[in-house]
């Protein structure tokens, strides 16, 4: 289970963007979190991905409470979660070739040796041709870069996936292609998914269950727009 209990989080303790949020994802389940622009759902997604320490509340991952976040989180926990963000250009190191971008988590966890085979396999899965793997982010389109970012999120075979507006910048076909990649991976591995978005049609089609932001944070009567 991925459990978020009474999470309050933000960038200024006096004005948290998430107040008292509760959300649970069961193993293998795909939960879509739907909310308007700027409601704080991306911040909650970062908490769930262990990338942002909440001001208060509890995160429980596979039965064990989380105490440390970001680079302080134990490796086994960080690698259990794969994350994809909305803007690939903000989340990709511009100096890395796509192959190295995809392999980055392998190198960071001392699994360099397995990188070439794993990268080739994932490139095929996400539809990147070998020629593209030698390019750097500024030499590929947004859609191609996001394909690489999805591959990077899957490279450590995570049990959980957090997709924060993964397709907001993408055309319809690339959207359908990347959702299919995620779903094929989940079918094969039983991974759970938290997909955050604002497109109800997409989230309903993609996920087992859709939750609305105002039911996740009922206490927060008003959130900053």
């Amino acid at each position: 289970m991925l459990e978020l209990h009474a999470i309050t989080a933000g960038y200024d303790r006096r004005a948290p963007v998430v107040r008292d949020a509760n959300l649970t994802v069961a193993p293998g389940e795909a939960v879509g979190l739907l909310g308007p622009s700027g409601c704080g759902k991306s911040t909650l997604a970062r908490v769930a991905a262990l990338l942002h320490r909440p001001d208060s509340g509890r995160v429980v991952l596979d039965g064990t409470p989380v105490h440390r976040y970001r680079h302080r989180a134990p490796r086994a926990r960080r690698t259990a979660i794969g994350v994809v963000f909305q803007q690939p250009r903000l989340s990709a190191d511009p100096r890395l070739r796509l192959a190295d971008l995809i392999a980055e988590p392998l190198r960071a966890t001392g699994r360099r040796a397995s990188a070439p085979a794993r990268v080739a396999e994932l490139a095929d899965t996400v539809g990147l041709t070998p020629d593209l793997l030698t390019r750097r982010p500024h030499e590929v389109s947004d859609g191609q870069l996001q394909r690489a970012c999805v591959a990077r999120a899957l490279v450590l075979r995570p049990r959980w996936l957090i997709c924060d507006e993964m397709t907001a910048m993408l055309d319809a076909s690339t959207t359908a292609a990347l959702v299919r990649v995620v779903e094929d991976y989940r079918t094969a591995t039983g991974a759970g998914l938290l997909a955050v978005g604002h497109d109800q049609t997409l989230i309903d089609r993609w996920c087992d269950r859709t939750v609305h932001w105002d039911t996740v944070t009922p206490a927060a009567a008003k959130t900053p727009a």
Binding site: E139, V140, Q144
Partner: peptide, 8 residues
């Protein structure tokens, strides 16, 4: 050679 040209 940037993004717009980067199709493959």
């Amino acid at each position: 050679g940037a993004a717009e040209s980067g199709a493959v």
